[in-house]
Amino acid sequence: MEIKEKTTMEAWKSGMKAVLDEGREFVDTNKRVCREVINLKIEVSDPKKDIARPIETLNEFKKWVYPPIDEIENIILSKKLAPAYAYSYGPAIFNYDNKINQVDDFIIPLLKSDPVSRRATVVLWDPRTDSNPNKKAAPGFVMLHFRIEDGRLNSTAVIRSNDMFFGWPANIYQMFVLQEYISKKLNCRPGNLATFSISAHIFKDEFDEIKQVLEKKS
C-alpha cells in the first residue's frame, strides 16, 4: 500500500486511517490486540512545514507522557549510548560496532563525490546482537537510505515494526533531523521523507484516540 501526502500531519493521519480501515487484526506477543497492514509506504513531500505537529498532537492528550522532543532528536544524533536505553539509533549510525561512522565517513563523502549514487545506505540492524531470540528489544529502523534528486536530499527508512500512532511521529521526526544534518553538510536542500513500514500497526487500546486524531483538521 502506498500513501503520498504533502504534509507530515496528513501523512500520519492517512497512514493510521489505512491501517484502521484495511488492517488485519491479530494478537501480538504481549497479548495486545493489533490491527496491521504489511508493507505500507508513506511519502511526505514537504515535511518541514509541520514535522513536529504529530508529536504536538500526541502531547495534547493528557493521558500519557510522550518523550520530550529534544530526547527524540538526541536518540538519532548522539553517538553515545546512554546507559538507560537498551539500544539507541545514534550509536548505530555514527559509531557502528564502536568503529564506523556511517554518515560522516561514508554517506557524506560518497554523495559529495558521486551525487547520483544509489549506495548511500545506513544499516542499523546488527545481526550479532539483534538477531538473538532472547533479546527483549531490537531496533525498529533497519536501514536508512539517502538519495540526491533535483538538488534535494530525499530519505527513505525501512522500519521493521512500526506503531503508527505512537512510533511514526517520532520516527519521521528522527529521519527529518538526520536528513537536515546530512543536507547541511552536503550543502543541498532537504527533500521528501519516505517510510516503508513492514508491519504498520495500531493497537486496539488506542482506537478511540486515533479516531479523535483523524477527526482533527490538519
Binding site: 510522550y66 536518540i75 538507560a84 539507541s88 528489544a137 529502523f141 517520532a170 520516527n171
Partner: peptide
Amino acid sequence: NFCTAEESIFIACGMPTR
C-alpha cells in the same frame, strides 16, 4: 498499566527504556 503504556511509547519511539 501507566508504566507499561509509557514503556511501550518509548519503545515505539526507538528509545527502549525502563
